[in-house]
Amino acid sequence: MRSVPAGELKSGAPEGVEVQVLGHLIYYLPPVSREETKAVATVPVGTALGCLPGLLDIPHFEIQSYVVNGQAVTDLSRVLGRGDTVVLLPVISSG
């Protein structure tokens, strides 16, 4: 697993919210090795879910679902708080 910074915070900053990125979405983040299947970014507390694509430079239509603390969330105005964990699942992009 690779940890990469996003937004203005550095990776692992205490005020940050951890965002796990899976599947081909990892290739939108800084280079990862071919042994890796997920990447982790950190975004500021107070970020809205809907802002994640722009912040992480991932096209919004490549994200199938936003999972916050283990639950799929469709309300993209949801604001991330301290202690939240987010997983971004990719859409199928295959034949």
Binding site: L22, H24, L25, T37, L89, S93, S94
Partner: peptide, 24 residues
């Protein structure tokens, strides 16, 4: 241009890692 051409970079094989990640 927006949605399909970028996908051509790796073709359908570029989706293998995502299919595994989501259980497909």
């Amino acid at each position: 241009r927006e949605r399909a051409i970028p996908w051509g970079k790796y073709g359908t094989s570029g989706g293998v890692i995502s299919a595994e990640a989501i259980g497909d």
